[in-house]
Design a binder for these strands. Structure first.
Lengths: 222, 222
DNA sequence: GTCTATAGGAGGATAGAC
DNA sequence: GTCTATCCTCCTATAGAC
């Protein structure tokens, strides 16, 4: 009986607040994906969430913090996906190939890449400000964001090294280069180009990008 | 004697004007490469060129036209590069391989990709506004820009089809997908990532991106 | 055509009532 | 905490003298 009282107790008010902030970050995430940080306006966010702009500033002190919260949430989502994948065995992976057990690390990397492409096509992948944006500083100063990025990098990095040892990824490439290449695929403009051309379905786009990413543009040499 | 008078005559004044506009587009190109269209301000351009902002607006009617002129110039530079390459034979290409004559088209594509990566690392490749920017509309309405884009696409497209027929590019990929993939490499964020990590020289970065682009991340299957 | 000075507007952030 | 109304800064664009 008393044990229940020991559980972290969230008041109804707190729950409502968290739900609201979740709705906010979801909208921000969508807008970040659609137009990027600079083009996104706080007025748009307020309009999409359905509250006044001043109310937004009660939750977040600046536009940067607003975007940062959304990206932290996206990062944690990625972290959860990776950690779940990390505990799976070869039999669990839908991407399983005949020699699945020996290419488990590669399969996990491919599954992750496919997942990020799906997110991107669904408009839920916020575009990084690779430019000198004010957002960069805020992100780099955010412990939750940097911690998440670190965790994600370490999980992926382990799989990369493993896949290279398995003989499935090019051992001549530094692991860091492979890691960055996979990160880059999450904001690859080729997806937008192909999407805009309207010549292919989302699934076809994913397959083509997966092919060019892992197999390259060259014809197979055999 | 009179023949000289028939030549298109450029007054000294006109030459000065063209020189100034060339200096302007060069600065704009650098700034577009560094920070992108939205983050670039007209004040910065004026300061870098060394003239007053109002003077800029005598040359160009808007920030969009300013950027458009710079991108048209960059596009024409690319066009000149490709047309020059188009007339070369296998012996001319520095990238020549033992079976150079049969992989001429592939070599041209690789030389072009390498060239764009060099431009990007040198800070001379303006980043496309893949987002819904006001610049997009201006570019799409610009005949010089669209004509240049068309020419470039056709030259590259012909090489792509040829390389597929030669058995050097994956024939399962639609040529348009390969074309867009090469365009995307010109604004690939992986270059910034690797550059920022400061772990590799520009040449090493180019080699790694070339490898992942054409050979993929996978180890060779043989 | 080049300058200085300024209009005009968009957007981030806040004041103060409820 | 939510609202309406407003402030203030930055930036595009222009007016007008030279």
């Amino acid at each position: 009986m008393t044990a229940l009282k020991e559980l972290p107790k969230k008041s109804f008010k707190t729950q409502m607040l968290e739900a609201r902030e979740l709705a906010i970050t979801a909208s921000v995430n969508r807008l970040l994906s659609e137009k990027g940080f600079d083009a996104m306006t706080v007025d748009e966010v307020a309009a999409e969430v359905g509250i006044a702009k001043a109310s937004l500033y009660k939750h977040f002190n600046s536009k940067e913090e607003l975007a940062c919260a959304a990206m932290v949430q996206a990062m944690q989502k990625a972290q959860a996906f990776l950690e779940n994948l990390d505990q799976q065995t070869g039999a669990d992976l839908s991407q399983a190939t005949p020699n699945a057990s020996s290419s488990l690390a590669l399969n996990k990397l491919m599954a992750t890449t496919r997942w990020t492409l799906e997110l991107k096509l669904a408009g839920q992948m916020p575009t990084l400000p690779s430019q000198n944006s004010s957002l960069r500083a805020t992100l780099m100063a955010s412990r939750p964001y940097m911690d998440g990025l670190m965790q994600v990098s370490e999980l992926l990095g382990a799989w990369i090294v493993q896949a290279q040892q398995d003989g499935h990824l090019n051992p001549a490439l530094p692991p860091i280069a492979i890691l960055y290449t996979l990160f880059a695929r999450a904001c690859d403009p080729v997806v937008e180009f192909l999407k805009m051309s309207a010549l292919h379905s989302d699934d076809e786009i994913i397959e083509m990008v997966m092919t060019t990413c892992f197999a390259g543009l060259n014809a197979r040499q055999n």
